[in-house]
Structure formats: C-alpha cells, structure tokens
Computed example of a mutant assay.
Amino acid sequence: MSNEAIDLLIKRELPAAVRGDRDAYGRIVIASQNTVTAVALAITRDVPASEDIAQEAFLSAWHHLPRLKNPSSFLPWLRQITRNLAHDHLRGGRNRPLGGEAAELAIQYAADPEGCPMQQALDAERDAVAADLISELPEESREALLLYYREGQSSKQVAMLLGLSDAAVRKRLSRARQSVREDLLARFSEFARSSAPSAAFAVGVTAALGITKPAAAAGLGIATKSIAGSLFARFALGFAGAASGGLLGGLVAAWFARSTLLDYAGDDAERGALNRFIHRYMGLSLAMIAVIIATHFVFRSEVHTFVAIAIALLLMNWQLLVMLPRLVDPLMARDARSDPAGARQRLLAYRLTWGRSGVLMSNIIVIGSLVIAHLHFA
C-alpha cells in the first residue's frame, strides 16, 4: 500500500473507529501492523514478544482513540505507545535474547530443519536471528531496516511510516549496510520479510476488540452487551461471527500467500492444477462461512452453530492436510533436487502459510475467537 493510500485510509477510517466501528479500526490495523511490530521488534529483539506488544499497543490505542484530536497524529501516537510498551517489557526483565555461542549454535541448528522438529527449528531461527542480527545493527537503524524489507524496499514508504525524511531514512539504511556483513544482511532481509505479521495478526487484534470499546462509546453508554439484543450484533459478537471472522481471515491470508504455492509450479499444467486448488479452497471457505451464517440465523441454536463450525474446520483441514500434500509433495521433492538451498527457504514459507504450522495457527485463531466470544457472553 502506497504512502498516500495509507494516509488516506487512516483519515477516512479513524472517525468511524472513534465511534466504535471495529471493522474500520481493523482496516487501520492491517495498514499499520508492519510499522508497529517493527518498532516493537527493534527494541525487544524477540518476535513473539513484539507481536504481543503490538497487539497491546493497538488495543490501548483503540481504547483511548477519543483523546486523539488530529487524525494525522495517529501513527506518531501509535508508535510512541508501542515504544513505551516495548521499553516497559524490557524493564520487566522478560526479554532474554540469545547471544554469543548460543546464538551461533541456534543459527546452525535452524539451518537444518530436517534434523529436528520443525517448531524447534523455527523457534531457534527466530531467537537467533532476532538476537544476533538486530543487535549488530546501529540502534537508530533497526526500525528503518526492518520496515525497508517489509515494505517492498521503499525508503519513501519507510520515511512516511516512521515520520522521518527520506534523506534521514537513506542515511540510516546506509549506516546499517556499512556496519553489517553482507551475508548477515542477506539473512536479515529474509528474516524481516518472514517475521512480518500476516493477515491473521489483524484478525486476532480485531477479534480482541470485541471485549473492549473506545472510551467515547463507553461514555455514551454503548456497552457491548447492551447492543447484543439485536440480531446482527449477536451474530457479529457471538460464536458464528467469531468463526466466520476467523475463516475469512484465513481466506485473506491464503490469497496473499498464493504465490508461495505457485512458486512450485514447473509448467502451465502444474500452475493450472495449483490455481484450481486455490480457487476450490477459497470457494469452499466462502461456502462454509455462508453455511455458518445461515445456521446461526435459521436455527438460532449454539449447538447447531457449533456443528456447522466443526464441519467447516474438518473440511478446511482436510483440504490443507490431505488434498494439498498429494498435489505439492512431488513438486517439493523435485524442487529439493534442483535447488537445495532455495528449496529450504521456500519450504519454510510454505509451512508457515499452507503447511501444518499455518493450519495450526488458523485453527488457533478460530478456536480462540470462539473462546473470547464464549467468555464475553458467559
């Protein structure tokens, strides 16, 4: 998204968000999530902690939106909230990055994912890269370099998101390039892109908004349970809405990650087969969302809604865990033979989007949304 588009989106959506429109605020989250997580990651050097802090920053901003008088001040205000939370995190002693030989060992361990369980490899790689690479960067360059690789290597885009001049960003990027070895910089660029938050992050933040409202809405007496009597509100905030939102988030993530799958195509026939799977998967997702919504409004029963959600999850998991591997596994084997070095990176990207890790994350988001909805109405 271009500088002008992000700025225009925030100015357009912010008034509705202040009035309590979660969808409007969700669109703001999607536009600014790279910035907020990069600011947190540059300080904490810990990917999971940075995403937790970013979520807390978005929720804090949501709750205090009425304090913001000028829409153009939103990004600077949000960045400062994030920095304060990240420094509080460090002062709390919760950040313990790897260093020295431990970091080197973790990098070597993560470089061979076949030699260990996948999750251990992913955790080791994240810890090692975050601790080792970010620590080697000049402190003032960390945010700029993370965003530079996450935002399509556009210094102007980074300048707008960080509230700096283009010249200042270019200077910080130059300092970073001069102080970091070329091989580490290449590793860092891959890390910056792979650690960027997916569409699932925004879905998680938006789902969490259901348990809080901006202060202005609270001041007007618009509490969540007071509007839950309407049919639409009960859908939006209840089990059906939570599950539909989670499935829709997975659908959006799949659309943006389709290139990860298509990279394995060797010819037009294989590309066509992969495209057919993607379209079938998305069509099934939309159909199951429609079934969940219809079940909610027709039967008005949590039991029937849960059955529809369970069937939807089973069908989606069957597509991704059974049908897709039959199609992709031969292509992966060929890829590993023809380009072993590149194949490992592509395999990691596949596992985080279409593979078991991506499926697990999607299920966690859907089930977590259901838990939040249950706790809200309990």
Rank of each mutant, 00 (worst) to 15 (best):
G272A: 08
Q319M: 14
A253K: 13
D268H: 02
A287H: 11
L324V: 09
Y281L: 04
S285F: 10
R300F: 06
R300Q: 10
L314M: 13
A265I: 02
R276N: 11
V298P: 01
R334P: 04
A333T: 15
L320I: 05
F232Y: 10
R271S: 08
R334L: 08
L247T: 01
V298G: 03
G246T: 05
L314P: 00
G283F: 02
L327Q: 00
A294K: 08
L220W: 02
A287T: 07
G219D: 13
G246D: 05
N275Q: 09
K225P: 05
I222T: 02
A312Y: 06
G250S: 10
R234H: 06
E302W: 13
L286S: 11
A265W: 08
A265K: 06
E270C: 03
V322L: 12
S226W: 13
S226V: 04
T224H: 11
D263R: 04
G249W: 00
A287S: 11
G229N: 07
V298T: 08
R326S: 14
M332I: 14
P325W: 15
F306M: 14
A290R: 09
L331V: 11
R258C: 11
L313C: 12
A253S: 10
L324H: 00
A216Y: 10
A254R: 15
I292C: 08
L284T: 13
D268C: 04
W255G: 14
L321Q: 12
I222P: 00
R276P: 00
G246A: 07
I293K: 08
T224Q: 15
G229S: 15
T305K: 04
A216V: 09
F277S: 02
R280T: 14
A243E: 05
G246H: 05
R271W: 02
F239E: 13
N275S: 12
L314T: 13
T295N: 10
A217T: 01
A223L: 14
R258G: 11
G272E: 10
W318H: 15
P330S: 03
V291E: 15
I309F: 11
E302Q: 15
I278S: 03
A215S: 13
L313M: 15
G272Y: 09
A290G: 11
G266K: 03
N275R: 14
F256M: 05
V303K: 15
N275C: 10
A312W: 04
V328E: 05
S230N: 01
T305F: 04
T295W: 01
P325I: 12
A240Y: 02
A243F: 07
G241I: 04
F297W: 03
H296P: 01
A257V: 08
A236L: 00
I293S: 08
A236N: 07
F297D: 00
R234P: 01
A273K: 07
T305N: 09
F232L: 04
L247M: 12
H279P: 00
A218D: 06
V303S: 09
A233E: 10
F232I: 06
A242C: 03
G250N: 15
F239T: 09
L220S: 06
A287N: 12
M282K: 12
L231P: 00
I309A: 12
S301E: 07
D329Y: 04
D268P: 05
F232P: 02
A253Q: 11
S230I: 01
A217P: 00
V298L: 09
D263A: 05
A228K: 02
H304R: 14
I293N: 02
